[in-house]
Design a protein around this nucleic acid. Structure first.
Length: 309
RNA sequence: GGACGGGUGGGUGAGUGGCUAAAACCAGCAGACUGUAAAUCUGCCGCUCCUUGCGGGCUACGGAGGUUCGAAUCCUCCCCCGUCCA
């Protein structure tokens, strides 16, 4: 007996109220929440990544939050495996899984799957990174062009990060990465997916982002970073590249004044929101709602869509 | 009242006779992105027209005049800002 189960997906830019909406819906629909956010998977980085507090969660179970150590490399592939497991487990208990999505790539990896490509190899990457340092990004791009003409044409020569991955794949498999893409993607099976997108007016979103950064600071963001550093976690760990965390770390470690850096954090967050919007726009079958997830009418509309779906 | 310095496109700021709708940077907008994705990268960015061309027209470097074939760039006067002297 394998009836298609429902999976609710809530996506939207940062600060659009995804969590609030998810929690409201979970309360009414016997749901549990699954985070789909590349930063909230990391422990101890709480305030700046926008994790909901225990009080805000209202007793609803949250999954895939705080599942990685800050020095761990966590990837889309890792996310896909864990999320599929969580989904199965939640619906086996008769609950409705509600995904809150900030990271579009993770959502795609979960729903559409990933092609069967080798995982990253630190040795190869290290070597390639040294090459870039010595000879520049163009040099690396030429190496890629030799092994994978099609792939090289698709990747900008200065996009070192993607160039490295493509070379890595071709080295590991002996084939051009571009040839390996799009063959066997194992899409998620057995769920009826209902996607709800939050789309507040741009100006309001930006204002909300600016305010939220202030609120995070007021809530003790700086102290949080301080205690992370005191606990012995290295300041060069991946999680310290997250928006705001790098700036606050500079403030604490090198005494850079915090005040003038606040607008920078707000701006970086606004740009991030824009990139999320660009990604989500391409997502198929999304029921877009104009407004924030905190708004009652938006919550009511979302509920209707899910019940009807 | 006097002496300097300065007023440039949304912002900062280069440019000191033609190659300048005006560098660069920022902001903004749009986009790409299959194992770092809160990452990484790309394009556009005065207005307007079409036959979309390294096309045409218009407007633009505080204001008004002037010099010049040609001015953001030189001259005159005026207005404003800053610093200093009285």
């Amino acid at each position: 007996m394998n009836l298609p189960r429902k999976l609710v997906v809530i996506l939207g830019p940062t600060a659009s109220g995804k969590s609030a909406l998810a929690i409201a819906l979970a309360g009414k629909l016997n749901g549990e929440i699954v985070c789909c956010d590349s930063t909230q998977v990391y422990r101890y980085f709480d305030i700046g990544t926008g994790k909901t507090t225990a009080a805000e969660q209202k007793g609803i179970r949250h999954h895939l939050m705080n599942i990685a150590e800050p020095d761990q490399v966590f990837t889309a592939g890792d996310y896909r495996r864990k999320a599929r497991h969580s989904l199965e487990e939640i619906s086996a208990r008769g609950k409705l899984p509600i995904l809150t999505v900030g990271t579009g790539l993770y959502l795609r990896a979960l729903l559409e799957g990933l092609d069967d490509l080798p995982a990253r190899s630190e040795k190869i990457r290290q070597r390639l990174r040294e090459r870039v340092q010595q000879k520049g990004p163009e040099y690396l791009h030429r190496i890629l062009a030799r092994r994978d003409t099609v792939g090289a044409a698709r990747i900008a020569s200065r996009d070192t990060q993607k160039v490295i991955r493509a070379i890595e794949v071709s080295l590991l498999t002996g084939k051009p990465a571009s040839q390996l893409l799009g063959r066997g993607r194992d899409a998620l099976q057995g769920f009826t997916v209902i996607k709800i997108g939050l789309l507040p007016a741009r100006a309001k979103l930006y204002a909300r982002i600016d305010r939220r950064v202030e609120e995070m600071l007021a809530a003790g963001w700086t102290d949080e970073v301080g205690s992370i550093l005191r606990s012995g976690i290295s300041p060069s760990v991946k999680a310290f590249t997250f928006i705001g965390y790098s700036q606050i770390r500079e403030h604490i470690v090198n005494g850079v004044p915090l005040e003038p850096v606040i607008p920078e954090i707000q701006q970086a967050t606004r740009r991030y929101a824009k990139r999320q919007l660009t990604w989500f726009r391409r997502e198929s079958n999304v029921h877009w709602l104009t407004g924030f997830g905190t708004e009652e009418n938006v919550q009511a509309e979302a509920l209707q869509i899910i019940v009807a779906g």
